[in-house]
Design a protein around this nucleic acid. Structure first.
Lengths: 218, 218
DNA sequence: TGGAAACTGAACTGGGGAGTTTATATATTA
DNA sequence: TAATATATAAACTCCCCAGTTCAGTTTCCA
């Protein structure tokens, strides 16, 4: 039931290697592992099946390689907004807006879908996804929350839990609605609504009373 | 790519109907739609394949029937703790403990996995799952948050967002870790940690200052 | 008790898809 | 330009699996 994959590396590379990865990415992220068809991948990649199989011993190695590359490619892509010289609330707001927007992107949604769906068959992949995705966001937030500038304005007993809460608050409302097909796509208004609410709640819990926190909301 | 299923009802019922559903439930929730094998389902159900196909025209109808039944069976199973005559904080805490425990159960985890994985192929199923799961919890919370007893102690501008935030706060930390295989299972301590933190943050944001809110935490 | 309805097991069909092979063509580089 | 590595197209094998069939058995019920 559970497959173990030793090497994620290709047997040998070649001119069309990137094309194969890209084609496989498109098809796997659309159809999942079982649903994907190797002939379709080859066609999408503009490559012959023989070439594809000269890089990867079988479908599952290709699958794993593609998703690990995607994880690496996007790891930490979501924590760029934590070091500006702005007010604490604004830093968090920018970060939450960016993160919420990311969560609602087609890429993140389909990546989440595929990894959730296959984490049981490919446990190593599930872990890699967690580390590149949720954990990298969480890690960067933890570090930020422990920095002196934050410590001065906030009182955080458990930074790991706090970070995770902020992260999950960004999943409010629209994330699952899109994941389960209740909305087609989300606009900037939705994103701002969710991000504002997340920061508001987070600050209410963790901002030190009487610090330099303007009571302006919205 | 996207299948449309008109009738979820079986062509005709029979003695072994429940056995079929139960066997299919086990196999589908373990292997997903594409991964599941009809011979395995029949064996698991202790039923012949011919019998199975006398109830359902094909695999996808069976799949849909099983998951819709599961949705119905568990809909609202998670909102029992909202009407006790306790302090507000304790009501919320009980509810969050119960909900967090539920989120970490094998059933909820596998149901979530399968529905996320197949929501694209079976959009109707995705919507049903959302309504029976996330939305039913959210709906009960919204109602509760709008009740007079809560209004007296809390100041909630947007009850839908508030409800969703509390719900998502219960997903902190352990939910995704289990979903992606980083922890095998969660114990009561984990559950209490997450639920306490959720209520604490929620109250910090929404509890009216100076109301009958004991400052006891943990 | 007898007949109808439901169920069984096992074999069968047909199609789809993973992975291989081969003879040929195109790049690469020296 | 010659030699080598890489890519191609298409046919082919093999296995898996969804769905069917049917002759025989069990259950139900009148």
């Amino acid at each position: 039931m559970t497959e173990t994959l030793t090497a994620a590396e290709p047997i040998k590379k070649g001119r069309k290697y990137d094309d194969v990865i890209e084609g496989a990415r498109v098809v796997f992220m659309r159809d999942g592992f079982e649903g994907a068809n190797v002939d379709n991948i080859a066609r999408e990649a503009g490559v012959s099946k023989a070439t594809l199989y000269s890089y990867f011993p079988d479908k599952s190695h290709l699958f794993k390689a593609v998703l690990l590359i995607e994880c690496k490619r996007h790891a930490g892509a979501v924590t760029d907004h934590l070091h500006e010289g702005m007010a604490l609330r604004d830093i968090l707001l920018r970060q939450c807006q960016f993160f919420t927007r990311f969560l609602l992107s087609d890429w993140a949604q389909e990546m989440f879908r595929v990894c959730v769906g296959e984490a049981r068959r490919f446990p190593e992949l599930g872990r890699s996804f967690y580390e590149a995705g949720p954990e990298s966001m969480r890690g960067a937030l933890i570090e930020f929350l422990q920095s002196p500038v934050v410590q001065a304005e906030m009182d955080i007993d458990d930074p790991e839990m706090a970070a995770d809460q902020l992260k999950m608050l960004c999943h409010s409302d629209v994330f699952l609605k899109k994941m389960f097909g209740l909305v087609e796509s989300a606009n900037e208004d939705d994103i701002n609504r969710v991000a504002n609410a997340a920061v508001e709640t987070f600050m209410a819990r963790y901002a030190r009373r009487g610090a330099t926190v303007a009571e302006a909301a919205e």
